[in-house]
Design a protein around this nucleic acid. Structure first.
Lengths: 117, 117
DNA sequence: CGGGATCCCCCGCGATACTG
DNA sequence: CAGTATCGCGGGGGATCCCG
């Protein structure tokens, strides 16, 4: 059976999570619920407005998050995880757990290499 | 609480899966077991030797796959998933399942948009 | 306040050629 | 057979400035 990246279903999920700030945004919204643009930005020091906007747009495009605009001055925009988006939570949690363990794995590996040197 | 990409545990796992051919390589080795370099290359039309080598090296670096060289002419190199690497299987399966469903989700969404137009 | 528009840089990835 | 070495591009991501 021939394999191509475009046909790999895993990529469908991966493509949504990939993006420098996407996992952070998703974990934050999953924990904290609905948040304003400025709250998101404040919680992520280092991110630019352009990047935050872009990542949010891409997640919205995939129906993972919802964007609600309140027509008022000054503007108010709120973001939250959609029902559908919550189906990603088990995957994110699994990756978080695996990632935490993997950090330990690397440290252990380095120590083993020191012993044998 | 301040969030930074470098501190996100999810990234630890994500970084390992990210790479154009990595999910395919992992799924293939998980299904088929041990495979030679040439078998891997043949099963993935479109991949170059350089890329296959690079992706394999990166996975090996993280202890996800094992590389065994047989000192003979012509050369023979076999790759397989490590015990540790198998801990990624649940995540890959979850992403595969989610990704499959997400493809359907997009199709449904497009049809809904056609109706309302 | 919550963006959009521009410019720029880095690096993942591909094509090609060479090697023990 | 299973790799390295070199060259080049396209796109993700950052910095900066402007807008209703």
């Amino acid at each position: 059976m021939e394999k191509k990246p475009e046909n790999c279903r895993v990529e469908n999920a991966l493509g949504i999570l990939v993006g420098k700030w996407k996992p952070i945004i998703l974990l934050y919204l999953l924990q904290e619920g609905t948040k304003r643009f400025s709250e998101l930005k404040r919680s992520m020091p280092g991110i630019t407005q352009k990047m935050l906007t872009k990542q949010l747009r891409e997640l919205e495009e995939e129906d993972i998050i919802e964007r609600v605009v309140y027509p008022q001055v000054p503007p108010k925009v709120e973001y939250s995880i959609t029902e559908y988006g919550r189906s990603l939570e088990p995957i994110l949690e699994a990756m978080h757990e695996w990632g935490t363990n993997h950090a330990l794995h690397k440290v252990t590996k380095e120590k083993d290499q020191q012993k044998s040197s």
